[in-house]
Design a binder for these strands. Structure first.
Lengths: 137, 137
DNA sequence: CCTATAATTCGATTATTAACGAAATATAGA
DNA sequence: TCTATATTTCGTTAATAATCGAATTATAGG
């Protein structure tokens, strides 16, 4: 039976986790996604519609936020919905407290909020058709 | 007399400031510098001695931290001492509160603390001689 | 006023990250 | 089971950031 190192040995240090977290927060698009997710859970196609970036780009941003422990996802019907991690580990919870203090009343975030409000009116089926159809760009 | 836009017009939004701040925090070396500065103010040559990076690199990191409003500096004799911004604006103060929650008892930060303890024993004159002399590297 | 020197700036290089479109994956619903 | 499609992964390119050594700056102290 081969020797297996206890999982403790490969555990990342809190500094490494923290760097993962601060790097995840160190991008404007990702901060704006987090701000939107404070109000609603959203599927990828809705986030794509807000930022007008390629869906592969948004997917990457979401993966970074997820790996940092900031968000989670669940599948419902044909869509994957992303939402802020509920009751996250303390260091992430504290990060949210901090961010909330910072980003209230920012004009760009307000604009994003208005935009998502319109997007939420559109049926995701129609939204995805627009994104995957050739009338895009 | 030329028209000069009121400074208000070029004022950055809070989101931009926040991105500046999160980017400044999104680097391991800079987080470690901040952790060290929680205990002591330090001059550039002392920080260089801890990290074994070129003084130009450390200088850049310090400039980024300073621009984000996290640190300040003062000149004393031949050295410039860097220290955490006392009573900073609320969003930065909240960031420090958050960081303090995160980085207590991390082994790498502990090691840095031990190292700076030794370095503080050395006269800065001698420290800088070692760095600028040819016996380095 | 000089000179020595601590720190910064500059210019170049390397490494990392963001972005895209296309291809692959996975699966809901027919 | 099969097909349509929402999301992810892949491969590449472009932009940004970290790093270095050398040159420059600014100034403390002789």
């Amino acid at each position: 039976m081969p020797f297996v190192a206890p999982s403790k040995w490969v555990q990342t240090t809190s500094l490494q986790d923290l760097v993962l977290l601060t790097k995840a927060l160190g991008d404007e698009t990702r901060l704006r996604i987090l701000a939107l997710l404070q109000d609603h859970e959203l599927c990828a196609c809705q986030i794509v519609a807000v930022f007008e970036l390629a869906n592969s780009t948004i997917s990457k941003h979401l993966a970074i936020l997820k790996q940092a422990g900031l968000i989670q996802s669940r599948k419902q019907s044909r869509w994957i919905y992303f939402f802020l991690t509920p009751q996250p580990q303390p260091e992430i919870d504290a990060a949210f407290v901090w961010l909330n203090q910072c980003w209230q009343a920012d004009p760009r975030l307000e604009a994003d909020r208005r935009k998502i409000k319109d997007i939420l009116q559109i049926d995701p089926v129609e939204l995805c058709r627009r994104q995957n159809g050739k009338d895009c760009c």
